[in-house]
């Protein structure tokens, strides 16, 4: 590395350190600060810009532009400030995770067209939430009526499941407030081992059935056709389910 390269690198590190400081000062969670700075460091390395300030602008101004758009800015009325996080999980773990994240102050607003829980958290006064999931095959109205007296409110549907939320403040009072909310999780997908095992079993069954068909017919293309048919056969109900959910989300 030449002296000029070393100088550039030194200046870039100085800029990124200053930017990290300012992002923290603007209230960006620590894990987001780290990810942002690493990402921008990678950008500088890849584009070969020696001067970080020429690429991103003055650190304070850039930090101000980045933080107001991450959901943790301070608006005119701090009481209105919310963080937003979208995440998804499979049916084996979703209820447990809803309650875990509910304990961290996340309130589900809706389930979007691709099955993600769109969750908000009040930054100034985060409150604990609890959740339950109900199987609904003939509409949700009866279940809504049955659960309403206990304070459960519908917060989303996904295919045959309806999700309900209830503020823990109803049972805990002021103790339902989350005193030290953890940062917004970086992950947005939570799939259990059971879910992956199910996928693996499905894939293995398809391959075995394809192999049996190929051996039985004495023709490899017959097995391939069987496997392709199986995949297409699985894709059709998945596409139908996605279309149904999308329409339902739009209606609601």
């Amino acid at each position: 590395m030449s002296t000029t390269d070393a100088d550039d690198r030194h200046r870039q590190d100085g800029y990124l350190l200053e930017l990290a400081e300012r992002l923290r000062a603007h209230g960006l969670p620590a894990d987001r600060v780290e990810a942002t700075v690493m990402d921008l460091g990678a950008h500088l390395a890849e584009c070969g810009a020696g001067d970080a300030e020429a690429e991103f602008g003055p650190a304070e101004e850039f930090a101000r532009q980045l933080v107001p758009d991450t959901g943790v800015r301070a608006p005119a009325d701090p009481g209105d400030e919310v963080e937003t996080w979208r995440w998804t999980a499979d049916a084996y773990v979703d209820e447990a995770l809803l309650n875990r994240f509910g304990d961290e102050g996340w309130e589900v607003q809706r389930v979007d067209a691709v099955g993600r829980f769109v969750s908000h958290r009040d930054v100034a006064q985060p409150q604990r939430w609890e959740y339950r999931r109900e199987l609904v095959t003939r509409g949700r109205a009866d279940v809504d009526l049955r659960l309403a007296p206990d304070g459960w409110e519908a917060c989303g549907d996904w295919l045959v499941y309806a999700y309900y939320k209830r503020p823990r403040a109803a049972s805990l009072g002021p103790a339902a407030r989350v005193d030290s909310p953890p940062p917004v999780p970086e992950r947005s997908s939570f799939f259990s081992r059971k879910f992956y095992a199910l996928l693996a079993v499905f894939a293995a069954a398809l391959v075995v059935a394809g192999a049996v068909a190929a051996v039985g017919d004495g023709d490899a293309s017959s097995g391939l056709g069987f496997v392709t048919g199986g995949i297409v056969g699985a894709a059709i109900p998945a596409a139908a389910a996605w279309t149904y959910q999308r329409r339902r989300t739009r209606r609601s």
Binding site: M38, A42, C47, A49, E55, F62, Q65, D69
Partner: peptide, 30 residues
């Protein structure tokens, strides 16, 4: 410039129009 692009990416993320995920790389920076 990065100073123009990244705030736009953040705004799109906040609006739910894009999803973002930080991934560490085996070689090189995340």
């Amino acid at each position: 410039k990065g100073g123009t692009l990244y705030p736009v990416l953040n705004r799109l993320e906040e609006a739910g129009l894009v999803d973002a995920e930080f991934r560490a790389a085996e070689k090189g920076p995340g």
